[in-house]
Design a protein around this nucleic acid. Structure first.
Lengths: 235, 235
DNA sequence: CGAATTAGTACCCGCGGGATACTTATGTCA
DNA sequence: TGACATAAGTATCCCGCGGGTACTAATTCG
């Protein structure tokens, strides 16, 4: 079975050498509805106790960690993440598919527009109800969410999940999905205004009911430098 | 399409039979005067371009990362760190003593009372004027400081550097050393009060000039739970 | 006793976030 | 065509909290 074989090799083969190398695993999130979803791949190893796991592969010797992680993400999702950051190294004994002694985990995001996953060995799960994962992957998923949310004040993650032009309501919804909780409208806009994170365009949204919304764009570096980060976690 | 197939294709770059393992490096800080100091060890390899480097060792197969890091710290400083946390994995090509392809870095602290380093191959350097370090260690030092300071709101690092009983002035000084900047006295005490992080004892400091200071102790978990962390970075 | 020193507190001010309610601008439908 | 629904965007008030300043308190030293 072609699919089966392909899926099988998605997890690192059991290490045969005396010193097993390390794996690069990616926790890939995307906004889906009002929640975040995490990308899982079907466990191919028939000995695996769990049916799903996170995208993983061995690190190649000549790759940097970032490049390797992008490769793993692209292999699983079919597209490049629009934002990515290292979560850390995990090696504290929990079982890992493939038996890697050490795993370097990365958290990444992709926009919702590329959710067309035809591959039956890949699926998105709500972060609220993830499938049963191998122990180390379970730990890494929680750590990845933690990293994602603590980085939101400093990295423009929400913008990397939206088109170049967006309304402030869309931006706020994206922040709410990423942070997993509601934000206050007036405070949100005040914070954006204060940090000069966005600038208005001449475009207005025409579709839909209600008052049209003005489109904004992410403010270029030049106009943002020197500004302190917005502490959205305080809103 | 090809990329997606790669998602499940078996192309883990074949490891050489003798793949080098990863190293565990520790960035160990201690309060010294009004500044932090970092522990460095003399470069043993005569081919090393730099005279100093950070404590490092290969990871043993059967150790967890934490245990290995504690071992490295103990070997260099002679004592166990009182607080430690992982910084991350570093493997982006910078030169590393020993030639490790991957390094897992830990940040740790020890109280100032154990500064008696008789070993001439070990020395403390002010973080403001560190010695020339191998490239990867230079990067790791900055990352470790960053990790230390961002964790201060959530981990009782300052308390781990003080005796069981301390005055609020001593506590504030410790926070100032760790954060690298002055704090406002009234705000600092208000924040402590609000978070119920400390509780007064019946003891008073007898030594020294000026008004005696009341001794406090770190409040036990039971009395602190439910309280939100103190954002000392906002003070 | 008074000056110096350190600990601890009181007061005021201003900023910024939360809540609420309001205005504005569209679509929908009777 | 006008009332209503819907969504965007704003105004206003309140209050908590951090910063600045200056004050009081308790000790040592000369």
């Amino acid at each position: 079975m072609r699919d089966r074989d392909l899926a099988t090799s998605s997890s690192p083969a059991r290490a045969t050498s005396r010193r097993p190398p390390y794996s690069i695993d990616v926790i890939l999130f995307t906004p889906r509805g009002a929640q975040l979803a995490v990308l899982c791949v079907r466990a191919a190893d028939p000995r695996s106790r769990e049916r799903w796991q996170l995208p993983t592969d061995w690190a190649a010797g000549d790759e940097t960690l970032d490049v390797a992680a992008r490769r793993v993400a692209r292999a699983a999702a079919g597209v490049e993440p629009t934002w990515m950051e290292q979560v850390g190294a995990f090696a504290d004994g929990q079982r890992h598919p493939g038996g890697a002694t050490l795993t370097v985990a990365f958290v990444a995001v992709v926009p919702a527009t590329v959710l067309d996953v035809a591959n039956p060995d890949v699926a998105w799960f709500s972060v609220g109800e993830p499938p049963t994962l191998p122990p180390r992957h379970r730990v890494m998923l929680d750590a990845a969410l933690e990293t994602l949310r603590t980085r939101m004040d400093y990295a423009p993650i929400a913008f990397k999940l939206l088109p170049a032009m967006f309304t402030l309501s869309e931006l706020q919804q994206m922040y709410e999905i990423l942070l997993g909780r509601r934000l206050h409208k007036a405070s949100f806009r005040r914070a954006l205004q204060g940090a000069v994170l966005v600038e208005p365009t001449e475009e207005w949204r025409s579709e839909g009911r209600g008052r049209p919304a003005q489109f904004y764009r992410f403010a270029p570096r030049k106009r943002r430098q020197g500004r302190r980060p917005v502490r959205f976690d305080l809103l």
